[in-house]
């Protein structure tokens, strides 16, 4: 049978993959995509714990719903900022916007 541990391990692996993407990607759009993987891993952990441990209240699923909402808001604002970065620098890469280095 599939246990809660299976789902939590899958969520942890997804979290590790997303973290790797955030740290290694140099295109800022790809960084935001990796952040999406991180948020989905967290939502998956919430939903699986709710399904296994919380038979009457659905707080975990409602939490996952709000994670999806916040992720959509974060992504739309992030993309609008990246559009401005593209207009002022010509590229959306993290190396290009490092001129505030002290």
């Amino acid at each position: 049978m599939v246990t809660l541990g299976h789902f939590l391990l899958l969520s942890g692996l997804l979290m590790a993959i997303g973290l790797y993407g955030v740290l290694t990607r140099r295109n800022l759009i790809a960084v935001l995509m990796s952040v999406e993987i991180l948020l989905n891993a967290a939502a998956l952990a919430f939903v699986s714990v709710a399904a296994y441990r919380d038979p009457h209240l659905f707080a975990g699923q409602i939490f996952a719903l709000f994670i999806i909402v916040v992720a959509a808001a974060e992504l739309s604002i992030g993309f609008a900022i990246l559009l401005n970065v593209y207009r002022s620098h010509g590229v959306v890469e993290s190396d290009a916007i490092s001129e505030m280095r002290g």
Partner: peptide, 28 residues
């Protein structure tokens, strides 16, 4: 190197989650 290190650290952190034995799912 930094990404692999952080991913490995995250996995070690999540390894504690992997021994729950129950297997009944409540559907919503």
């Amino acid at each position: 190197a930094l990404g692999a290190l952080a991913a490995a650290a995250a996995l070690v952190f999540f390894r504690v989650a992997v021994d729950h034995g129950d297997s009944s799912v409540a559907s919503a």
